[in-house]
Structures are given as structure tokens and as C-alpha cells.
Design a protein around this nucleic acid. Sequence first.
RNA 1: UGGGCCGUCGCCAAGCGGUAAGGCACGGGGUUUUGAUCUCCGCAUACCCAGGUUCGAAUCCUGGCGGCCCAGCCA
Length: 550
Amino acid sequence: MSTPENQPSANFIRQIVSNDLAINKHNGKIATRFPPEPNGFLHIGHAKSICLNFGIAQENQGTCNLRFDDTNPEKESIEFMQSIEKDVQWLGFQWTAEYHSSDYFDPLYDYAVQLINQNLAYVDSLSAEEIRAYRGSLTEEGKESPDRNRPIAKSLDLFKRMREGEFEDGKYVLRAKIDMASPNINMRDPTLYRIRRTHHHRTGGDWCLYPMYDYTHCISDAIEGITHSLCTLEFEDHRPLYDWILDKLQTPCHPQQIEFARLQLEYTVMSKRKLAQLVIENHVKGWDDPRMPTIAGLRRRGFTPDSIRDFCERIGITKKDAWIKMAALESCIRDDLNENAPRAMAVLKPLRVVIENYPDEQVELLTAKNHPQKEEMGTREIPFSKIILIEQEDFSLVPPPKFKRLIEGGEVRLRGAYVIKCEKVITDTAGNVIELRCSYDKVTLGKKPEGRKVKGVIHWVSEQHSIPAELRLYAPLFTEANPEAQSHFLETLNPNSLEILSDSRVEASLANAKPETRYQFERCAYFCVDSDSRAEKLVLNRTVSLRDSK
RNA sequence: UGGGCCGUCGCCAAGCGGUAAGGCACGGGGUUUUGAUCUCCGCAUACCCAGGUUCGAAUCCUGGCGGCCCAGCCA
């Protein structure tokens, strides 16, 4: 995976970092952080940020913290925190230290007092609606709040009483005093603190005053000694505010915020709000539904950490809005699984085949390679008997051109076994093929047949030895490349995103397969054992099909 | 339409004034007891457009055009 020498590709952020290192900007130190809000599960877009932040730290012997940006208690929870920790580790990264924005509520408060003392912040009594009205518009300047020139002592007193819980939610906010005429709306006296009488998952009822993202993030970065604060493009307009706050305060350092484009993947959605809606409204079975672009979903689907990291490396880091095709992700997991997944045989939609000239009670244990190119992956035994099951699709009464599988009167190779010939087709009254009567050529085991060419090879399982399995096949969750561009993204939900095959049979060697075990079912697809799987009834998810150049 | 950012092959993406890397996708040949893998070959006289500077421009300048983001007491 990655590049052969494991050299990460050049990108503008790594260039900035190398440059800073070259001029000894931070005494040779590089410190990054991955700062999710614990309000949902991580998705593949987060993986991009994780690989970048942890990657840059690793490449430069630096540090990378995991920081939960938990300043909005209404949407956050311990469960989400735990899922995030698990997913980051599963992806293969270990943070230097774990922090929470809420760890900094005290210093954050003290810094706010400093700002008030410097006459750079004030307590405002305008309502949310009034503040919006006063803010102006994209083309019109805002106007100053009547409270903007509230005496420092008065703001100090009010701010203290806000913290003490004297006022109801929304009564006052703390605002930075910057410039109501700024062309950058983020600089029009942004709100720094709001009153929220909400239980916080970590600080409980200690606070009824919570700091806003813009105020919190820069200071948290500075407290942790972050050198490069990497975030997505939509925060570009916030950078002047990030810098303004740190410029006005005597913080330990002044990190550099650098923005990059967020990941956009076709045929899915990537906003936590929408993913949460899919879960809450039961359009999927949970955050880890294999159709979800969440780390947990991809994991359950059968993706490997390597494949996701490879994907993040392949798509690169730029400032350009890019739409990545599913094929790019699929290529990554195919490359990994082709290399590492043991092969096995499974028949998704069985068709019964009786080999008439094969002895009734005979069972042969045939030896099959677990990987066609990698001897070190070993072999396994596969029972062969008189009645086998093949794929319905591998037989055709009216074969299309170039069909190289079984036809009436034709021969085909059973993978790892004999060449068989279709002697008779049995149909039901409706004309459906329900069984095949074949003969086998006993000298073709491990040998080419003499005097003729048999081009097709098909997979099979022994009827009496195979194990019933439920196979879950997935298609994209949405029917439009960009569901969010539609009037409502749910309108483009794909009604056929899940297909369940409950009559499939897998070879006997899968008997004790544990969840998260991955296989290539030869000629078919890669599958991964699901957490719903039981000894009596195996359940597997199709991760991705094999390339098919038919 | 105020501000910010972006525009190199169908989709990503290197390139940083010296004459267009790579990946995905696609097309074709070879090998193959997986129509898989592997392998070989092909795939931008061209970098949003128009001018300009230069011996030389995707790279610099000017002017257009197109796209994305911002008016939460969300992050």
C-alpha cells in the first residue's frame, strides 16, 4: 500500500511543514491534533484528516493529540467519544495525548476576562434574532450593539454572574469587540460565550456558560502547543478571527491554521447531521451499517485499516473541491484483499448438479490453495461428492456470445476438481432449470483433458458438506452522485441498497469463521463475516465484487 | 452582487520559468484451473479563456469566465 518506499506524496501542507522545519520555526517540533466533536461516528472524511494529522506528526517525529471539541453539550456524548477513540485506533493511530476542549473551560474563562479587561469583549443583551439583524448582510455593513460600549466593570460583573447561573439561557452573550463593518462577517463582533443550562457529558453541571468554537479552538491549540492546526476549507474565513484572538491574548504560542478541502465521495453523504438522520430515522441499521461511509460501517463491510489509509494517500490533499469516485475506494480495498484475503468457494444462488457417473457414497477431500500466488498462505481440504451446487448464472440454456461456462452438452472445469459435462437439463413445468445431470471425467483432476480444450472454470460446493449462509450484498445508499445537491437528500435514497441472499452455501472450511474474517469467494467477490454471524447461520457482507471485464 | 478560496486528461493529482509524473477509470495484447491477479501497450502538442512579459510560461503580470464557502447564541 502507499508508495513502494512508503514515501507520502507531496502536498502543500507537507511542504509548509518541511519548510518550517528547515527554518527551525518551532525549534524542530511538529505538533498536530485531530479535533472531532463527539456528536457522531467518524466517517471516511475524518479518516482523511486523521491520516494527515497523525501522518505529518509521524513523518516528522512530532506529536498528534486527540482532542474532543466538546463545547456544545446538547449534541455530545460519552458513547460518541468512545466510538471515536476506537475508530482512530482501529485505523492504526495512537495519539500522543487525549484532551477535551472542556479541560480548558477554566483557562478559557480567564482569557475571556482578560479580553473584557482589554476592552476587547463585552456582554451583550441583544437577543439572537437582534444580533442577526444587527450583523448586516453579505453586502451591507452591520451596526453596533447598544451594549457595545458597556463599561468594562459592568461587563466583568455581568460575565461573572452569567457563569454563576444568575441568568436564563439566551439572556446575555459575551462578544468580541472587533469590527461590525468588516467585509468578513466572522469579524462582526462574533459571539464568544453563550448561556446553556445543559448537562455536559464531562463537566456535568459545573458550567452553564459554554464557549463557542472560534474562541475555543485557537486557544486550545495554543495551550497544547500545536504548531500546525489543520482544518477544512470552510474555516478559511475564520482564520482572521483565530489569529485575532491569539494576537490579543498572551497564549503560550500562536499555531498556524491551514485549510484543506474536505473529502466528497460520490453516492453517499458525509455530513454528521445527515448520517445521524439516516440512523435515527432507520434508513440504515445503525452507525455501523455496512452501507454507511463511517469508519465503523466500512469496517463492518470488510474494509481494512490499510485500505483506508491507502485511499487517503491516493486522493491527496489540496484546496480544490474534489469529488472522488467510489471506484477509487474500491480499488484500494481490492488491492489489499487480493493480496491478503484467503480464497474460498461459495455459491450465492445454487443450482443442483448430480454427477451421475460418480460413486454414490464417495467423498474425496481435494486440496485447494488458499491463494493462487502465495504458497505461504497454505492449503485447505474441500470435500467433493456426487451432488454439488453451482451458481445458477454459470449455466445457460441459451448462452450469449463468448459464454464460457456450462451449457447443455458442454464441458466446464470445476475449480480445483474435475471437468464435468452437462448431459441433461431438468426443468420444472414453467421451464426453469432446476437441476443438471452431469458426468465427470475422472482423469481431469489436476490435469488438462486430452484432445480438447475446456475454457471455462466455475466454482462449486458439495451439497452435503456445504454450510448455509446469509450473504448481504450492498449497493450505494443513494442513486445520485451528489445527494446533497437534490432538494432533499433522502429523496435519492436507493431502495435497493441491501439485497439479502438467504439460500447461499459456503464451503465447509468456513465452519468456525469469526466476525471480521475476510475471504475472496473465487470468481465472485470479497466477503467479510458479519457480527450477526452465528455457528448455525453464517452471515457475511459483500465488501466489494471482483473486477469483472466480461 | 461584500469578502475569502479554487480552476492541469472522464475522476483524483504531481508540477513552483527550461519544454506535461503517478493513481483510478477506460481500450487493446499476453499469461492464467478465479472472465480475478499479474504483465505489456495505448490514453492532455496540452494546463478555464484572452492578452502581456520572456530566448522560453501550466508556472510571472493584467483582464475576463466558471465553481465552492461565509450573514448559528453549531462545529
